[in-house]
Design a protein around this nucleic acid. Structure first.
Lengths: 181, 181
DNA sequence: GACAGCATGTAAGAGGTTACATGATTGG
DNA sequence: CCAATCATGTAACCTCTTACATGCTGTC
């Protein structure tokens, strides 16, 4: 049920195609939700049937026709109702932690390589987030809406910083393990 | 596919019932995976059919019979093979962040109450983790296996610390919003 | 008397992934 | 020439949640 509200939020101030919503979830500001294009197209179809969104189809030369979606009044009403509901804590599912927990079954070098791979990815992501953060400055002068968005960006940044700090501990430990064979 | 490996890891050094595995995921050391009892019973059934685990049924007075599971050699082999595979990054799905992103649509007081609720929960969880952390001390003197487990606990602690630090920013901002009505 | 804990399960349905399918344009 | 970008979708399958079902014991 949350996906549809994520879509309505994505469509809040700009109309967009399913393709664009997918992009938005993948990179840019979608650091709080992810969905595949298949899922999004299906959900948009259902939402259209339920009157939460409408679309205009636009023919294009050399490209497939696109459907530009926008949220209806009923869609926004549904979002506002949903926003009032309490959030249940998301169940933890972390495959990397699972592997570290069972790490003594593996060769330290292999686990270390895996951790380093994630570190590189997360360092890159953090750099991107810092890049985006600069666009928000000075925050206090931006519209209130941007300030809320900024908080979610800050969440991404503090999360990644904490994760990278933690991963230092992991790397040190694994290097020790590797040395003592 | 990851659930079965989480179960094999849970059964690594002690045999257990489905009920106990569920408890283990819920509280205690299950801060890297969660699954409902329905899911676990079903998975254990499939795993038994595939020869990854076996069980002994024990009749009890006044309580329903229980099945004590343990991993087979083929189960451990499957785990060790899986551990070599690269981990794909878990897709982000954070409902609270979604609500904060759309926060300008809500009354600040309501969102603030929601955030405070999560803060209370996370503070409690952090206290529990700190409690468990003390049992690990001094880490260097514990068996290597415990040291790997300790790293995953450390992940939980640094995550929660970072989250709580971030939530301070959120609370300050929402209090300001509330004051300026 | 009601609720929590122990201990197992089935079944329906929602949510999500993977694979497949199409087809033109642009950049390396 | 291959890959990526734009742009849509279907179908099979796996995963996970929610609801239902049972039944005894011990505590408030």
């Amino acid at each position: 049920m949350a996906l549809r509200y994520a879509i309505i939020i994505a469509l809040e101030d700009k109309q967009a195609t399913g393709y664009e919503i997918t992009k938005w979830f993948d990179n840019g500001l979608g650091y709080f939700w992810h969905a595949s294009h298949q899922q999004i197209y299906l959900e948009l179809k259902k939402m259209t049937e339920e009157g939460l969104v409408t679309f205009v189809e636009i023919e294009q030369e050399g490209k497939p026709a696109k459907k530009i979606y926008q949220t209806t009044a009923s869609g926004f009403a549904a979002l506002d109702q949903w926003l009032q509901l309490p959030v249940k804590p998301m169940p933890v599912k972390d495959t990397l932690l699972m592997k570290i927990f069972a790490g003594s079954r593996m060769e330290p070098a292999i686990l270390l390589a895996e951790v380093e791979r994630h570190r590189t990815q997360n360092r890159q992501l953090l750099a991107e987030f810092h890049e985006i953060e600069r666009c928000f400055q000075p925050v206090a002068e931006k519209p209130v809406k941007y300030q809320y968005a900024y908080l979610t960006l800050r969440n991404g940044i503090t999360y990644l910083e904490g994760w990278l700090k933690w991963s230092d501990e992991v790397v040190s430990f694994l290097q020790l393990q590797e040395q003592s064979r």
